[in-house]
Computed example of a mutant assay.
Amino acid sequence: MSRRRRLHIRRPRGPAELVAAGLTFAAVTSLLLPGLRVLLGTLVTHWQWPALSLLVVAGAAFLRAGLTQSRRRRNRTRRAGLSFRAGELDAMDDRAFEEALRDLMIRDGWRALRVGGGGDQAADVIAEHPLLGRAVLQAKHTRTSAKVGAPVLYAVNGTAGPVHGAQHAVVVTNGGFTRDAWAWGARHHIHLVDRERLHQWAQDGGALHELLALPTRPLRMLRRAA
């Protein structure tokens, strides 16, 4: 393999090379100076625009940091009020798991009821929020290694809106979801909460509507509800 040759800049030798180097430097400087004058003139004349841009960038960074700190404080408060560890959720039976999801929704500022049981029509918890509307939660308590398949989502999709009048359909499990379930849920706007997201919700204190980025109801629906 041939070695790459390094570029060496040697000092001018003799009067002729010194004169040539000086002329080259003068020529380059004469070419650059007009552009520098224009740039400096623009900055001096329109200094408010760069300053405003810096202020906007700094303000956005400050706001983002403030929102992050505020979210962390809310999560700590929620976690102190109610939290469930993964092992606690795994040890529950179906009814206790549904009641835990109901309590977590209440913790997050929702009015929630457990309605699971025979004839629940794919709704174990129904929750209401003044800004976010109604959410239907279908709970699937299972082994941690098990995965919930797409057929569960078919039932939720068929009843969440038409039967329960919900704007948000959510399936929650302490296990996982199959690849088909993730794809089908994304196509039909069904929110899936797997073991990792359940941990963020139940133990870390994140609000479910923030983790799922649930949209608020349209303004006309908020006025009608008021």
Rank of each mutant, 00 (worst) to 15 (best):
R79A: 06
E88P: 07
D124R: 00
P50D: 00
L54T: 13
A112I: 03
L54M: 09
E98F: 00
V56D: 10
L54I: 15
F84R: 02
V125N: 00
A100C: 06
G81C: 07
V56P: 14
M105P: 01
E98R: 00
A60K: 09
D94A: 07
L82A: 06
R102P: 01
V44E: 05
A112R: 01
S83H: 15
A112D: 06
V125P: 01
G81T: 10
R72G: 12
Q48D: 05
M105G: 04
A112F: 05
I126C: 12
L55S: 12
L101Y: 02
L89I: 12
W49N: 04
W47P: 03
S53G: 14
H46Y: 04
A61P: 04
A51W: 12
W49Y: 10
R95F: 02
T77S: 13
L113D: 15
A122L: 03
R72C: 11
G87H: 06
Q69D: 15
L104S: 12
D94P: 00
D120G: 11
L43D: 06
A58K: 08
S83P: 06
D103K: 00
A61L: 11
A51F: 10
L82T: 04
R79G: 02
R73C: 10
W110V: 08
A96K: 07
G87Y: 01
R71G: 05
A123T: 05
Q121S: 15
A96H: 09
L101M: 06
R102H: 03
A122G: 02
I126V: 15
L55G: 15
H46F: 07
F97E: 01
S53Y: 08
M105F: 07
I106T: 12
P50L: 00
R78H: 08
R95W: 02
R95N: 02
R76T: 04
M105N: 05
D124I: 00
D94E: 07
R111T: 11
L43A: 08
A91H: 06
H46R: 14
R85H: 08
R64A: 14
R114Y: 15
V57L: 03
L43K: 03
G66K: 03
R79K: 14
A86Y: 06
S70K: 00
N75R: 15
L63I: 05
T45P: 01
A123Y: 00
Q121D: 14
S70L: 07
D124N: 14
V57R: 00
F97T: 01
V44K: 02
A123L: 03
T68H: 11
H46M: 01
A80C: 03
D124Q: 09
R114P: 03
R72Q: 14
A112K: 01
G118A: 13
L55Y: 11
N75Y: 07
L82D: 04
E128F: 11
G66S: 07
V125H: 01
R74S: 13
R71W: 05
L67P: 07
L43T: 09
T77H: 12
A80K: 10
